[in-house]
Design a protein around this nucleic acid. Structure first.
Lengths: 369, 369
DNA sequence: CGCATTACCTAATGCGCATTAACAAGCAAT
DNA sequence: ATTGCTTGTTAATGCGCATTAGGTAATGCG
């Protein structure tokens, strides 16, 4: 009961205007000062007069603008959103434990592009953090709800909760997922073209002369993994190489982990190149590198390695592996463009963005037999 | 005109309810289904019935909750905020160019504490990004305005715009600044006690036997710099050492930059220990290290170095310098506590938090003359 | 049995803004 | 003059929710 007294709003209740200086002025005050109606103020300030062909005389415009300026009027974003379903705010929600604002964070490069494009489109950004649990959940339906404060929302991460997303999509709330995603029907997304990029890497290896290539992937059926595997197999087939189930190894497969012995065995069978998928942890790549090292194999010399993605930040100073780079900033920017389209009512479907091939220094011709 | 048609809201205009499944249900729908009034729904869902001693029968409560659940009701945060001036959202605004590539993580540790404490207090977090310029600014008054979406807001950074902050404070919007700050009268803040911590470092150096100590600081009059200088000078005086203006060097001072020659000159004059202030870029510390290195001076042996703060993350693997650690997560948590108090209407003033002295490995006794 | 309590619930109102129907002029054409 | 059209402005309404001032039925008390 104390709490209600001095909340964020200057005058919560029906208390009459205070004696001294007015608190934050409303459009009504501006209107009074300018000698016009509140509706006119709204029209002028939102610039909708010209946009909607509802003209306002230059004189009136000036009066209103003067009044607003002298009173220091600023709009209430909550009220705008309530009344018009627009407040020029774009939400960004990521499903990692904490803030993706850390530079080392793998989502960071996306945000760079997101922010640029958002600014270019006249939107401000609002980041919602994923971890908090305490929130306002009256219905308990979930923390995702607060994104409705914004005009639309971007989602980052492999593990966005499908049901909550489905709900937003069903309500026709503008949502764009960064990363390909089939799950909620009708969800818009932007994704990197892992299939083509992976195919290209395999083709390059084949071009160097490799006849047996092995993919090391994690045991996780996210689209990002599936797509890479498909591109990998496509590439094998396209180059006339054997593409049986033996060409793919899942860490966690029955038969144990990725060990030096296993690598030696493969090499003995004729495998001359290894390809690892990239994930947010980079586990597959690390495991592969470790095993090859432990087996005492020289990398560009005896075996070739490639990474279907970019190396993790902490390995940035090692020689760049063959592979491809995901244009993360571009993806972020494209996501914003899609979202803006959704907000404007235009439909939007999934969009693929091409990756850039990276020759790197970890691949060469196979050793002579 | 196309735009208005399919905005974020399911049914923007006065169009009657659609034929098929209803879009996002309102309290009114819940009320209808439960056979009670909308007001009762609000009371039950907000839990305010028991809180305010306004009793609701268990039977009615159950009916309402059932209805809300079966309809999948979720509250509209914008409407909550508008009606009650509360939505359990805490804003966080930082004033560095939003996603700067090199600096960012210096605020990261704060956010860790902020997030934890916010969750503990039942708040969700919303991050506002600083750079965007395109936003809704009808009044042009500024991007800070959107923080009003939240119940209150935390501000991070040395260079928060004073006038915009003043405005929020004047409007009695709950604001807490992380970092000591005098500027807008009545602004609540939490800060680290740089004065005491810096004094302690100087005292430690004096205790090792140093008689002439020099402070290297940036040419920036933020309170964080001023406080460190004051503590530094206090420490000199307290230890009976000379504390004239010659004891402080500002990078950017007339007379040029921090060079190896200059360092040699100081050493020739009898300076045996150097102290650098910490800033978000770590520029002073970097410059000092570089100059000492270039001068060919051995660090713990010929000169002692200390850093008034923590080393930047990219230097984390070097030996830790003498200095102090700012308890950033604790500061963040304390800031949230203050902000929650402000939101609840309790007044809140500035709060200082103590830093932890760090002996480090860059300081030893001065060389024998 | 009349009146004051309590217990429980609802009608009404407004938060600040955007939108729309309606209206008031002004002016051209009939 | 009457009609029709364009231009400029306003009254009225509602977004979804919280809150306050009652209102009604059930109970207690003298």
């Amino acid at each position: 009961m104390v709490a209600k007294e001095a909340a964020g709003r200057a005058r919560p209740g029906r208390t009459p205007a205070p004696a001294g200086r007015r608190a934050r002025p409303r459009q009504a005050e501006v209107a009074r000062l300018a000698g016009v109606s509140q509706a006119t103020v709204s029209l002028v300030l939102s610039g909708r007069d010209i946009a909607t062909g509802r003209p306002i005389s230059a004189e009136t415009r000036a009066k209103v603008l003067d009044a607003a300026h002298s009173l220091g009027y600023v709009p209430d974003p909550a009220a705008s959103r309530l009344a018009a379903a627009r407040n020029n705010l774009l939400g960004v929600f990521s499903f990692t434990a904490t803030f993706p604002t850390d530079v080392r964070h793998s989502y960071y490069p996306f945000l760079v592009g997101v922010e640029q494009e958002a600014a270019a489109q006249g939107y401000d950004l609002v980041l919602f953090t994923g971890s908090s649990t305490g929130g306002a959940g009256a219905g308990g339906a979930g923390a995702l709800n607060r994104v409705r404060l914004a005009d639309g929302c971007l989602f980052l991460g492999r593990h966005a909760p499908a049901d909550e997303l489905r709900r937003l999509v069903a309500d026709d709330f503008p949502v764009v997922h960064v990363g390909r995603r089939d799950e909620p029907e009708g969800l818009a997304w932007v994704g990197a073209d892992y299939v083509s990029a992976s195919r290209e890497v395999v083709t390059a290896l084949a071009g160097l002369g490799h006849r047996r290539v092995l993919l090391v992937r994690e045991d996780d059926d996210a689209p990002a993994s599936t797509d890479r595997e498909r591109g990998f197999l496509d590439g094998l087939v396209g180059s006339g190489l054997p593409a049986g189930p033996g060409a793919v190894f899942r860490t966690g497969d029955p038969g144990g982990d990725l060990t030096a012995d296993r690598v030696r065995a493969w090499v003995a069978e004729g495998v001359t190149a290894f390809v690892a998928e990239e994930t947010d942890t980079g586990a597959a790549w690390r495991a592969l590198r470790a095993a090859v090292d432990a087996a005492g194999l020289d990398c560009p010399g005896q075996v070739s390695l490639a990474l279907l993605g970019s190396p993790p930040a902490d390995l940035a100073d090692e020689p760049a592996p063959m592979g491809f780079d995901i244009p993360r900033p571009a993806l972020g920017a494209e996501a914003v463009r899609l979202l803006a389209a959704r907000i404007a009512g235009r439909p939007a479907e999934g969009t693929l963005v091409a990756c850039a091939f990276r020759p790197g220094a970890t691949a060469g011709p196979p050793p002579a037999p």
